[in-house]
Design a binder for these strands. Structure first.
Lengths: 184, 184, 184, 184
DNA sequence: TATGAATGAGGATTCATTCAT
DNA sequence: AATGAATGAATCCTCATTCAT
């Protein structure tokens, strides 16, 4: 890849991140291009679909989140604490990225890549933590990691727009519920 | 109101309900009018804003849901059972009305009336049930009824599109979590 | 004509006059009907075209204006004074009726009846005054009464919307010009 | 600017000029685009508001008119002749551009830029000529240049639609009136 | 005769996407 | 490889006019 192409790609990622914060992940292509100082065609060259752009923008943070899983499990006092810390991390990520939680739904055709990426990368991590936590409290699984992850994601939708809505509290309650059922 | 006007209004409500399921509550006015077999102007006559149409479409069911609260409290074996039955009812309502859960977010400008209506009508009902349940298990409140209701609503988003996602299970876990914290 | 029909027609004229002042002579039919407390169909029954309604609304005042011509000629010190007083009267009428001066242009199809009525009724009056004034100052005619009337009307367009525009002054200057050319 | 963009802009100006003559300056965007052979979006790219398009269409002629003022003052036998020649020029411009005179009214929201442009550009020119003419005939001013310019503009409204209406004659009478009042 | 519900043409505007330069 | 001009589908909303009741 030519040096200028790489520079453009970097500029686009930064611009998109900034615009996504302001206007959500459905912001007009033109706005992103303008902020990056490139033509719209350049966006399409680097990221043929919007979903690919969104994935690229958040890749670093998703990776960081994924990497945090094993580390937290090793460092935390208990597996439950590790799970709680990890979902708190995930919640913070989603809530600060305007519209991202909603985009995880995968409904609309274009967001499939985003949905897949999140699931592929984070469900295994979440699964490890959940499994360890369940074992440590001697509970049986009531939900799988996919459901838990998606539930957490859903609870974060719209959190940034509503000062009375406390997504983080609800998420911790959901964890409590998931770990609460005593093993028979 | 003239008989034909009433017939049109009814046709519009049914058409809108059907189109909302398919295309969400932001579906084009023209599509709703076409399905109802009326002109677009007729929609604007009966429901000057989109929000009023959405509220009208779901009013019956919201009222039924609100009415069910006190009844369940009286009929159920325990307050917790009443709360669980009621949220199950609410979940069933939201999940079968594709796109409704998402519309409950007050984000988009036009849906504010909808958001208000849901909150005004259901938060008090939810609050009664929650309060009774908390008291019966001798727990302190960790969330208010608004947060609980909105959390339940959020957990239902996209549930109809994903066979692997079990919103009802997650909602019951959330209730478990909300009732789990021992008092004092 | 039945008594109720006459009552409706009267109500419509008053309502239209009021609405025209507020919103101009192109105000929505519905607004006029609503203010009159009748259905829209009733407007169409009484006044099939908008032009006929406008004519009817202003008939009294146009007649009063026409009648004022001979009277002013008889009462004024000089024919020129009579002409000046009469155009001042006409100007006051036009300026206070929002949009009426513009509607006198026979451009748009619907306003033909209005245009015709004004011309038929007022050009002769204006002509008498102009002729007498020209004779009294021993000037030759440089414009006919039709041109003078229409010129005065045009000068009044938009006068109510622009505090810096003094239609009345300009009109008097136009009269001065029309009487200024010395007869050979 | 790319050659094709410049070609489109030129085509748009010509198309708009033609359509304005036929349908007035409020002609549908679609009609202008169709005549220019471009998409509607292209109009919005080049001229974000209707007012900007109107100004662009008439800029050349307004500038020519403005430039003619000082030249006429220098070349004419008397300042009055210069003023008369200049307003005749202005009248010819307005009358041949059907609908332009009407658009000079600042009424409709979108045409404000047009109104401003005309006033800013032509009132000073008109003022110089008027002042010189008044001085040369030893008359005191009875109107300012803004009123005179707007009056001339108003007299031209609808002139192209009415063969019996002689705007040019009326305008010269208005000038006569404006210069007639003897000083002292 | 009166009502006002219904129609639907008409016009503005936005933006994703393509492709000539 | 990059640009950004152009396209035009999609959608909203208003209101004159007709006509069933």
């Amino acid at each position: 890849m030519r040096v200028d192409a790489r520079r453009n790609e970097q500029a686009l990622l930064e611009a998109a991140a900034a615009v996504f914060v302001t206007s959500g992940v459905d912001a007009p292509v033109r706005a992103i291009a303008a902020r990056a100082g490139v033509g719209m065609g350049t966006i399409y060259r680097h990221f043929p679909t919007r979903s690919e752009l969104v994935v690229a923008v958040y890749r670093h943070q998703v990776e960081a989140c994924a990497d945090a899983g094993p580390r937290l499990l090793a460092e935390s006092a208990t597996p439950e604490a590790a799970l709680r810390a990890w979902v708190a991390l995930f919640v913070e990520f989603l809530v600060t990225k305007h519209g991202l939680a909603g985009a995880l739904q995968g409904d609309s055709a274009g967001s499939d890549a985003l949905h897949s990426y999140f699931v592929d990368r984070l469900v295994p991590v979440c699964g490890s933590l959940l499994h360890a936590a369940l074992k440590s409290v001697d509970s049986a699984a009531t939900v799988d990691a996919y459901n838990l992850l998606k539930g957490v994601g859903n609870l974060c939708i719209g959190a940034a727009n509503d000062a009375n809505y406390e997504a983080d509290v609800l998420v911790q309650l959901l964890i409590s519920g998931a770990l609460a059922h005593e093993a028979g």
